[in-house]
Simulated assay, not measured.
Amino acid sequence: MIDYLDPIPPVRKFIDDLLPERVFGNTFPSTVALPAVLVRNMGGTDYTRLQLLVRANDDITAMQTLIRAMNLLERYGSNIKGLRVLWIERETAPISATDEDTNKPEAWCYMRVETLQD
């Protein structure tokens, strides 16, 4: 039997170690210094779909931070400790939006992650 491994903690730590912005898993804290990055699981069958979401005080910073995080995962995802990554790629282009609760600019994309699990 193959045990499921939650990809959020290793992916969150990997990005957090490489970016100056704070990186969170699953939800932003109620009070968060911006810009900040969020990594959450958005499903997938036989692979994992992650959403990278960046919230910032302006739309340009949100988009630039998202693109840096996205590029780091695509280029160096096989180096994530605690996760045996076969492949990471963008499923969507980066999308600019506004968070409805905070009215802050954000940018997000989906990443497809294929892993081996023990």
Rank of each mutant, 00 (worst) to 15 (best):
N71F: 02
L73M: 14
S78I: 05
T61Y: 01
S30E: 15
G77L: 05
M70T: 03
L38S: 01
Q64W: 06
K81H: 05
L50S: 10
V85H: 04
T65E: 01
V32I: 15
L83W: 08
L73K: 02
I60M: 11
N79M: 12
P35T: 04
V39I: 15
T61I: 09
N57R: 11
L18W: 09
L52F: 06
D46I: 05
N79V: 08
E89R: 11
F24L: 07
L19F: 10
D46Y: 09
A36E: 03
D58E: 12
A36C: 08
I8V: 11
A33Q: 13
A33N: 07
L19H: 04
V11C: 02
R84A: 14
L34G: 02
R55D: 04
E21C: 04
I88N: 08
L52E: 11
L34C: 00
E89C: 04
L83D: 04
L50C: 09
Q64F: 06
V85D: 03
R49Y: 10
I88Y: 02
A36G: 10
E91M: 09
E74A: 00
F24Q: 06
R55Q: 14
G44P: 06
R22Y: 01
R55Y: 03
L19G: 00
P29Q: 09
N79S: 15
L19K: 06
E91W: 05
T45H: 02
P20D: 10
L34V: 12
I15E: 08
Q51F: 02
N26W: 12
E21F: 11
T61R: 04
L73N: 08
P20F: 07
N79C: 06
A69N: 01
L86F: 06
D59K: 13
G25S: 01
V85Y: 00
Y47F: 15
R55G: 06
A69M: 03
I80L: 10
T65V: 15
D46H: 02
P35V: 02
D16W: 12
T31H: 09
A36V: 12
E21H: 14
R84H: 10
N71V: 07
R90W: 01
K81Q: 13
N41K: 14
Y47G: 00
L19N: 07
E74N: 07
L19Q: 09
W87S: 15
I67E: 13
V11H: 03
L38C: 09
R22N: 10
E91L: 14
R49F: 03
N57W: 05
L38D: 05
A56H: 13
M42Q: 09
A69F: 01
L19R: 13
L34R: 13
V37N: 01
L52N: 08
D59L: 10
T92N: 09
N79E: 15
D58M: 08
D59V: 13
I15S: 11
I67Q: 15
R75A: 11
Q64A: 12
L50G: 10
W87I: 06
